[in-house]
Design a protein around this nucleic acid. Sequence first.
DNA 1: ATTAAATTTAAACAAATGATTAAAAAAGGC
DNA 2: GCCTTTTTTAATCATTTGTTTAAATTTAAT
Lengths: 224, 224
Amino acid sequence: MSKKIEISEKDPSTEEKIKEAARKVFQKKGYAGTRTRDIADEAGVNLALLNYYFRSKEKLFDLIMGETMLLFFQSLKALINNENTSLQEKMQDFTNQYIDLLISQPQLPIFILNEIQMNPKGLSERMCLHQVVIGSYILKQFREDLGNNDIPDSALIQMIVNIIGMLVFPFIGKPLLKEIFNLTDEQFQAMMYDRKKLVPLWIESMFSNPINPSYFTLIQNIKL
Amino acid sequence: MSKKIEISEKDPSTEEKIKEAARKVFQKKGYAGTRTRDIADEAGVNLALLNYYFRSKEKLFDLIMGETMLLFFQSLKALINNENTSLQEKMQDFTNQYIDLLISQPQLPIFILNEIQMNPKGLSERMCLHQVVIGSYILKQFREDLGNNDIPDSALIQMIVNIIGMLVFPFIGKPLLKEIFNLTDEQFQAMMYDRKKLVPLWIESMFSNPINPSYFTLIQNIKL
DNA sequence: ATTAAATTTAAACAAATGATTAAAAAAGGC
DNA sequence: GCCTTTTTTAATCATTTGTTTAAATTTAAT
């Protein structure tokens, strides 16, 4: 037989192979749904090596989940505190960044949302999202853009929910949308690229059509 | 001891107790994450009774999931084919109906979306969503409302994605939103009630601000 | 009341699964 | 080359978990 051909990219260490396999399988099947043997098979590696390198299934999952959350939320931090960009620019940056990320890893949102549902405290321990968002520069810009005075904080939250939803929901609902509209992966992806231009426009029109404050019941209740 | 007091609502049959417990635990922990013993405990019932009444964990899950999907999708069918309501009225009905449903069962969307991700074929077998949506009366109304001529079908889909997203996403992201904005359950619920009035307004403004067709790359590709 | 059917229970089984062990193999240092 | 350390392997363990069984109990019919 011929000698094994050298592949250009050197094969990753077993530790890395396991992590990569774990990421893939955990994202697809969830924590409870994956067996350690699935990960070992996916990595092409002996089962005992998982425990050799990562102590336990749970430790391995925590590691992956931590990295995933960082990937998902860290970029946000820098973006929303940039004092050199306008609100419109921020919305465009935000859109570009997340749509690119989610096109490359569409099941990120469900993976993270499931984890938050299972273990809500874990999130606030890892990232301190509340602090970051509340103290952010973008929040001031939001208020200014909305007229600054009689807009209740609940209205702000409603807007932010819509923005995040427009970016994230299509990926959460991808399997459903593919089913309903008979979309191929390519068609779906093309539509998501379209949204890079569309979402900022929809946001714009949301902000330029301010809604009567009387529609919000929580004027006094919620203070950010 | 005193004789057992008659409760006004007669206690449900064990079969019903099990189904109710199963619904609750499955929704909270997912299929792989629930043990049959969890369900038995939640129902306050001997473990063997699950298999006595429902044969197996999988059969029980299928039953629950079938009912859940029906609950979630059946109301849609009648609504979108009603020829006696305008598009605006439909949007308001749609909004009212789903927000009420989701306030009473907030984890319905994640539950269903997870199932679709795990088993995409199952959905199209149970409901034939594609047929129903494509042949629906509301689709004609959408087209008319958008000017009828040069709006590509992909634009329609984008709009529908936004509408569904505005209704469903806040509930999918509920644990995250509660974390970010430090919301109580009551505050969250009040905000969702507000959305009954807000979502139709946002939809309206989306339709009345038609977006340049050149933003859509899939004019030829997608035909509904 | 007697009997048959339906329901419930405690116990146990068998397969799956996360983890460990002890030995083998490979890598690295001198 | 020899020794030590690191990595890998096959086998096994201990627990969990879905399911079954056979007996006990309750319900319903005659």
